[in-house]
Amino acid sequence: MADFLNAYSIQNWLESCPQAYLEDTVFGHSSDEHEPDLIMENEVLRHDAIRTTVALVVGERCALAASSGLINAAPDEGSKRFLATQTLDEARHVEVFTQRLYDLGVAKEDLESVIAQHANPNLVKFAELLLEKVDKRDFLAGVVGQNIVLEGMAFSVFEMMHVMNAAMNPKFAHTLQGTIADERRHVGFGENRIGSLVRDNPARKPEIEKMQKEMSYWMLATFSQAFRDTSAVDELERIGQERTHSNYQGADLGKLSTNEMEALLGDTVLKEFKVRLGRIGLDYQSPDRP
């Protein structure tokens, strides 16, 4: 285990993150990039961007609370040190997405009320399930919930958003690019660290698989509400702005309805869960459909 943890050292983190892909960035993107006029000058699109970004802030606040809480539950120093870097990554994500809310015109004094107004209640349920495990200092369940389920979800959501924004909003796409690189590292740690713990604690498998099933349900409910609430697609059509024809998982996002996008994202994340859970010796449980 010690050798594998060397790859997750703070020294490695310094070399691969602040001294590499974050170099010369400000809040995750180049300092000369800004939100496009298309969003800033259209109230519907701007409000939609705010609502979407609030979901990212809520998710990252949960990840920050979980990763910092797991440090005190970790059974070894190497895992604690990796989680220290993850804590800082998650804090950075909270910061860059909060900054995006400011960039979109949210006044600093209104930040918390805007987040409370737009927070997706299903995502809040999802977060509560995870933080309950962290509060109990349950390292095994906490890391599966955080580094496999939450991070796996974030990874796919960020990837889809990155593809959608690459041409239309390079500033946001660059911010997402850095967070995707972080999430990849977090998922990798989860897979590598947890496999041996699952093998050593086989009696805990059913309980953790149940947690995965419940978290997956709330994740799908989050997607369902998020796509139901979005008004961006209709608004782009109304103003005659062609949607970006970007490829995600073999589909042209510019041609899909919001329902089809929701189904594609949900299926992609669940497929990834199945593969990742299999790697650590857990049996994927299909969630109920909301």
Binding site: W13, R81, T85, T87, E95
Partner: peptide, 17 residues
């Protein structure tokens, strides 16, 4: 303060390392 303390978490992890 949460963000600051997160930077401190990474600092303390670095010191230990």
């Amino acid at each position: 303060t949460k963000v600051f303390l997160s930077t401190q978490v990474a600092d303390e992890g670095r010191h230990l390392e």
